[in-house]
Design a protein around this nucleic acid. Sequence first.
DNA 1: CCACTTCAGTTGTTGCGTCAACTATTGCGG
DNA 2: CCGCAATAGTTGACGCAACAACTGAAGTGG
Lengths: 173, 173
Amino acid sequence: MTSETKWLNSEESAAWVRLVALAELLPGALDTQLLRDAGLTHFEYGALMAIADAPDRTMRMTELASRTNATLPRLSHVARRLEERGLIRRFPCPEDRRATNATITDAGMQLIAEAAPGHVATVRETVLDALTPEQLEQLYAIAGAVLTRLDPDSRLTATSCQFSEGPILAHAG
Amino acid sequence: MTSETKWLNSEESAAWVRLVALAELLPGALDTQLLRDAGLTHFEYGALMAIADAPDRTMRMTELASRTNATLPRLSHVARRLEERGLIRRFPCPEDRRATNATITDAGMQLIAEAAPGHVATVRETVLDALTPEQLEQLYAIAGAVLTRLDPDSRLTATSCQFSEGPILAHAG
DNA sequence: CCACTTCAGTTGTTGCGTCAACTATTGCGG
DNA sequence: CCGCAATAGTTGACGCAACAACTGAAGTGG
């Protein structure tokens, strides 16, 4: 069973090292900007955006977890903090009393409306502006291929879909 | 100064969402496998590999931080834990008494030698095997372009180089 | 050769994520 | 309709990372 390990060749190694560095540095860069300018982590921002984009500005915790690539315990902790800050409200789901619904408050809407332009600018500056249109397509395909491996059952939303990063908020202030 | 925000179009948004999901999920996947099979985080594994690959199996903390995309405080904590586990040793640098050198021990070498095959297999399964050779090249270029934005001064090593993921360890047991 | 700045690294605190354990509700098989 | 498994979510403990503050050594200008 000791099948000889096939080590990485130089092309594989170089690409891998860069991907790892990217995965290591990108989250921190996003958090830094958003925390500085809006007092939100990138994860909190994404969660608020997902709720804001949902019908009635309301979403169940499990679906929110799926949209934000998070575990339920993690989301529960974050939701408690967001609720304490008055950015969301939680209440039991009437149809299924096991479930919890989360609604974004007006304060929450206002905060992400204020935060969105700066965040989008950061996304452009650090990523999108560095890529050609072809590379953008390539990135889409490459990330999609890897996500299929990381999330084989497509339990998470990103593999096939997206939470809106965009114009929804243009008229949300 | 309120330059109208240029929101993301659907191609940009789709690629961005996938990149974020990738950056969110990949580190966890690497940690899970390495912690399960070797009791090491991916960061610890990378640090040990970097030291193992250095002349005399010895490297200064600052250079190690640069190679592992880490801040010095983070690395210092990790180094303390690795030293407590007997995987590295630290001693003051003779030439510059401010500096600290870290050497990987035989136990450390043995541990990464045992861990490497499983890790490389995971890297192949979750990333490399999902990509065509062209996509591997594209990934290299894309990640390089983004890293230039994330690390404009090329303070970190990954932008231009790599720590070896490979055959060095084949004869390191 | 003395003050001042910069560099290298460590340490303590604080906050977040993970994991395991737990509660409560729902669905399902007999 | 009763027992059991599965689902939805919360909670507490623990570990790691970020940040700031600190020590001490090395360079630098006067």
